[in-house]
């Protein structure tokens, strides 16, 4: 519960989290999270499964109360922002009412919104006009997602929150979805979406928040995050004496490990690192260069982030 004296939130912030924590039993799903979203941003909340993305969105939307800390949406509590019709949200696996038609459900969403659009416009923008008369329980996974999107955009919201919105969509549906989403962003709306696809964050977001174990690890443009997470691993064997000092001095290294004859490096520019390796006059055998998985990329970011915060505090 931060007092007003220590708050850094600005009145113009769309969303602000101040040292927000939420635990389920012993598991800290969100751990001292502080962040702010600004008007007009398209922000990706990136993290592996279990990083606390869904919990963060639940807290933002007032679906769960925070254990400690303050969540503000447009300067008020989450529920107030929703009642004012400023937030539209698309939940992961958000169930739908069955036995009603798509049109009836969208009409309901419009009727419940304080600043509604016309139901026909909502249907056509979500690309579901041709299935408007179909029963909701007879839809494919991708069609259901579109209906959820329609419910999230039934009125003139200022903030749109999407939890893994493209789950279950094929590539073309995904493209179409993000095209629609960009239109929303272009109209000046703030968009926050959770994803575990680095590529999706890269293509859509102008700001990326990396979440891991409930903590914010990185906050920057997609290019910055990609550079951090874009590390590759370089592994090889060496004969003869190994000069560890020389190896550790190779350019662009983010991590190095020598065990026996095997050397494992991580580099933010693998081409340059390997080039310099040959430059040392060494002859690496069984050379392997591979991209890091997302998990490892997060570890790379963690390490970098911890090192940075140490230098910041010293």
């Amino acid at each position: 519960m931060g007092g007003m004296t220590t708050t850094t939130a600005k009145a113009t912030d769309v969303v602000s989290f101040e040292r927000v924590s939420k635990s389920y039993g012993d598991v800290k799903a969100v751990d001292g999270l502080t962040l702010a979203l600004h008007p007009g941003e398209t922000v990706a909340l990136l993290g592996p499964n279990g990083a606390g993305k869904s919990t963060t969105l639940d807290l933002l939307l007032g679906l769960r109360p925070a254990d400690t800390g303050t969540v503000r949406v447009f300067g008020a509590g989450p529920r107030d922002a929703i009642v004012q019709g400023r937030v539209g949200a698309m939940l992961q696996s958000g169930g739908l009412m069955d036995e009603v038609t798509v049109a009836e459900l969208v009409e309901l969403a419009c009727a419940l919104h304080p600043k509604p659009y016309r139901a026909n416009d909502v249907l056509s923008r979500a690309g579901i006009t041709q299935i408007a008369d179909r029963k909701v329980n007879k839809l494919s996974g991708g069609q259901e997602q579109r209906v959820r999107f329609a419910l999230a955009t039934a009125g003139a919201n200022d903030l749109i929150v999407l939890d893994e919105p493209t789950t279950g969509m094929d590539v073309s549906a995904r493209h179409a979805f993000w095209a629609t989403m960009r239109e929303q962003a272009d109209q000046g709306r703030t968009v926050l979406f959770a994803t575990h696809y680095l590529e999706e964050a890269d293509a859509i977001a102008d700001r990326v928040l990396v979440l891991h174990r409930g903590r914010l690890l990185a906050d920057g443009t997609a290019a910055e995050i990609k550079a951090k997470a874009g590390a590759r691993k370089v592994a090889f064997d060496l004969d003869g004496d190994i000069d560890e000092q020389a190896l550790r001095a190779l350019p662009f290294l983010t991590a190095a490990d020598v065990s026996g004859r095997t050397v494992r490096l991580q580099s933010s520019d693998a081409d340059a690192t390997v080039h310099a390796l040959y430059g040392l006059g060494l002859y690496p055998r069984n050379l392997e260069v591979a991209g890091l998985g997302l998990e490892q990329a997060f570890v790379a970011i963690t390490t970098a982030e911890e090192a940075r915060s140490e230098t910041r505090t010293s």
């Binding site: 169930g95 009412m97 419940l112």
Partner: peptide, 16 residues
């Protein structure tokens, strides 16, 4: 059933 499917959650994101 609707609690389990998440429809109740979805409705909580409306002015209802």
């Amino acid at each position: 059933k609707e609690r389990e499917s998440g429809w109740v959650r979805q409705l909580r994101l409306t002015t209802l």
